[in-house]
Amino acid sequence: MSVRVVTYNLLVPKFAEKPGYYMKSRRKFLRIEYRWPLIQSQLKQEIQYHQNTIFCLQEVSRTLLPTLKAFFHQMNYIMIESLFGERYNDNMGVAIAVPVTMPLFYKNSIAVGDHIRSIIPSFKKDLFSLSTWQNALMYSVIDQSKPSSNSLWESVMSLNNALVCVGVHIHGRPLFIGTYHMPCLFQIPEIMVMHSSAVKDLMFQLAAGNPLILAGDFNLQPHDISYRAITERGYARHIKLPPVGNYTKNYPFNTRQLLRSAYHEKNGTEPNYTNFSTTRKTKNFCATLDYIFFSGNLIVNDVLQLPNYPTGESYPDRTHPSDHLMLAASFQLF
């Protein structure tokens, strides 16, 4: 009883083709007309060479959505998507594609900010200013000028990032699979801890004791407190988050249920990198941001081998259609 899970950040065409944004990438390699055939080839290989392959995709944009749907329909897949973004990012979101031959008994899309709001009953929105997540961006870790507790929590709950989750039967055994694209707010570690912990806890809640896999672009590195909070026993207890409004109640960390990383489990370490690019905002960025986490009665059979070091000056390039690498892991249910 095996299943293969692929996670891939496709890179929104509107971002890739923005003039001068990917400073070291040739314009030809940034166009979706060049990138899509390479992406399609990578996806096809995972279908052709492996059984029960499920795809977790990030930066699924409105522009590319019809092409993706047509591709997966041709490959006898069903796709469940949630586009939660804004006009400036082409309504980007996440999606899961499942073979039509695989019994699907559950599908849902949940905004994690709304979920956090729902589990803190003492939170009253009228106690807070109308601040949004943009206000929180004013916080700089360097000068330690933190936003107020109210502003921080309202920012967390205002983010629209959605978890897409499906439940499938593998030879009669239930398995829950989710994909998530974390907010890129690494300069505000409190928000990253809140969201990574909330999406982890939400997956355990949905799985209700069944095995689960959570894959995606988490915008956090293995040494970050967010990574450690969801993978290390007891670590979350040492994280102090600001109180909610005038109440002492805080986000209730689930410290008993933790996630394991498929690549770390199989190789003893995370990949050297999963993202490589030079943009106007980040120069020569090369780090691990993407993961396939899991929990429950699952054994990692193998993982897709990734390069140890990037080639070229920046992705996308001739052979890499995204600034992220595609990750994949095969699991055995026991």
Score class of each variant (00 low, 15 high):
160 N>F: 11
161 N>S: 14
161 N>W: 11
162 A>K: 14
163 L>I: 03
169 H>R: 07
170 I>Q: 03
170 I>G: 07
171 H>K: 10
174 P>I: 04
175 L>P: 01
175 L>K: 00
176 F>V: 02
177 I>C: 02
178 G>C: 05
179 T>W: 06
179 T>G: 03
182 M>V: 08
185 L>W: 07
187 Q>H: 12
188 I>H: 02
189 P>A: 00
191 I>T: 03
192 M>L: 15
194 M>N: 04
194 M>F: 12
194 M>I: 13
196 S>E: 14
197 S>H: 11
197 S>M: 10
198 A>S: 06
198 A>E: 00
200 K>V: 03
200 K>P: 03
204 F>T: 00
204 F>H: 04
205 Q>T: 13
206 L>A: 10
207 A>F: 05
208 A>V: 06
210 N>F: 09
210 N>Q: 12
212 L>M: 01
217 D>P: 00
218 F>W: 13
218 F>H: 06
220 L>R: 11
221 Q>P: 10
221 Q>A: 12
221 Q>Y: 13
222 P>I: 07
223 H>P: 11
224 D>V: 06
227 Y>H: 11
227 Y>C: 01
227 Y>T: 07
234 G>I: 03
235 Y>V: 03
238 H>P: 07
238 H>C: 10
239 I>V: 07
240 K>I: 13
245 G>D: 06
248 T>N: 14
249 K>R: 12
251 Y>R: 01
252 P>F: 02
253 F>I: 01
254 N>C: 08
254 N>A: 08
255 T>D: 09
265 E>A: 05
265 E>R: 10
267 N>A: 12
267 N>M: 15
268 G>F: 06
270 E>F: 15
274 T>Q: 08
275 N>P: 10
276 F>T: 02
276 F>W: 10
277 S>F: 08
278 T>M: 04
280 R>E: 14
282 T>H: 15
284 N>G: 09
287 A>Y: 12
288 T>S: 09
289 L>M: 15
290 D>I: 03
290 D>E: 04
292 I>R: 00
293 F>V: 05
294 F>K: 01
294 F>T: 04
294 F>G: 04
295 S>H: 11
